[in-house]
């Protein structure tokens, strides 16, 4: 009967129970967003930063990876990648930050601490929202990048695709995704 500090994970849930949990989490967030989270809408800031960071799409990728290029271009690309990631973070803020009495800010994960919620499903839902948003921006980015490459160089290289996938999908997914996990880990006591 004894129990160690590191908790044994319960036996795998039946699929329908997992589906039910997923549905509950989705309903919870939809209800929460329909009521408003009480924080200033971060969407406006997110879209504004997103527009500015679209400069990324006009970087001449062929020159970026050409031999003997100016290294400043890498810094500019990195800067705008961070700006893009910041825009994504602002977009995700409505799922993280809620006003909790006396203008204190809490995360939704904090609010769910004592609730009958599978934390894995909560994380999975947030990752789903994040990946969904990034998928849209990446597809738009790919179309723009290919279009720009065709107009400027009359050819598309594999670097055009890799460039967009890494900077507007993989990098923000890793950076913003790690904050989702970190917020959850912070609850460990």
């Amino acid at each position: 009967m004894g129990r160690k500090s590191v908790r044994n994970v319960a036996a795998a849930e039946p699929e329908n129970l997992t589906g039910l949990q997923r549905q509950k989490v989705r309903d919870y967030y939809e209800t929460l967003l329909s009521q408003g989270t009480g924080a200033l809408s971060p969407d406006i800031v997110a879209y504004l930063l997103l527009c500015i960071s679209m400069i990324l799409l006009f970087v001449p990728v062929q020159e970026l990876f050409a031999e003997g290029n100016d290294s400043d271009l890498f810094l500019i690309v990195w800067g705008f990648t961070l700006l893009f990631t910041t825009a994504v973070s602002f977009y995700m803020m409505k799922y993280h930050s809620v006003t909790y009495g006396n203008n204190k800010s809490e995360t939704v994960a904090d609010m769910l601490l004592y609730m009958p919620v599978d934390r894995r499903e909560n994380r999975r839902y947030l990752f789903g929202v994040l990946a969904g948003f990034l998928k849209k921006t990446t597809i738009a980015g790919l179309i723009m990048q290919v279009g720009v490459a065709l107009i400027a160089y009359r050819c598309v290289s594999i670097w055009n695709i890799i460039y967009i996938l890494v900077l507007t999908f993989v990098a923000p997914l890793v950076i913003c995704g790690s904050t989702i996990v970190l917020r959850d880990v912070q609850l460990r006591r």
């Binding site: 009967m1 129990r3 160690k4 590191v6």
Partner: peptide, 11 residues
């Protein structure tokens, strides 16, 4: 009882 991540020995 309530904290989902409380660490303890016993049951």
């Amino acid at each position: 009882i309530m904290h989902p991540k409380k660490q303890y020995a016993g049951s």
